[in-house]
Design a protein around this nucleic acid. Sequence first.
DNA 1: ATAAAATGAAACCAATCGGTTTCGCAAATT
DNA 2: AATTTGCGAAACCGATTGGTTTCATTTTAT
Lengths: 115, 115
Amino acid sequence: MRRDVFQAIADPTRREIIGLLAQNPLNINAVADCFPTSRAAISKHLKILTECGLVVIEQQGRERICEAQPEKLREISDWVEQYRQFWNEKLDSLERYLAEIQKNKVDKVGEVDKG
Amino acid sequence: MRRDVFQAIADPTRREIIGLLAQNPLNINAVADCFPTSRAAISKHLKILTECGLVVIEQQGRERICEAQPEKLREISDWVEQYRQFWNEKLDSLERYLAEIQKNKVDKVGEVDKG
DNA sequence: ATAAAATGAAACCAATCGGTTTCGCAAATT
DNA sequence: AATTTGCGAAACCGATTGGTTTCATTTTAT
């Protein structure tokens, strides 16, 4: 099944799994041991992660070794980064606004001093 | 309700709404007019987007103006970027590998020429 | 050969999701 | 004053989600 990376990382458990596998590859039971849920549930999460390419699984005898493919996160990164300029602009104008009211306050104080 | 930004951007329609509102603020009907779904459906999407802070809505008479707050995407950016170093490393080692087999190929050709 | 370990697959469940239609209400137009 | 516009809320629907338990299969260890 074709899977969406955005949908895959929507679940907090799956994000944790990625964080876990980014450190070192683990077999499915080892991953499941890190969570309070059942092995079957983790196995389903891993299936979703492999279906969108965030994880690859290699069969080794009776074990299946799961490895993170974090470069697939570039799709997310690309989407988010198209808005970075936009949000920087907004923060810049906020800073200008704050600087402006700060300036006015100083001016007011000056006036009081004068008056 | 407390909402998760990751879950909010999981839906493609909601990502489109963000893209739309990043250009200029629109009222709810104007947003809905950009999609084939009903106004009620879009309204629900906007509710989710406001609940996680990706959109703010300002009442103006009978209209409600929706504005994107893309700086909230920083949460996504921060999570993804923690893996960038990791995936750059992997790509680097892939490049080294490709360079290596390329070198071997050239060596082989040299051998053939010699033999 | 038998037992244990690692896993997939299937059946099931309640909750959530993304969608709809309908109704009602307040603000703006006529 | 009557009508139109913009919208929320509610009820409903089928599909999907995240979880479970149980069972079968394959590999490895005893």
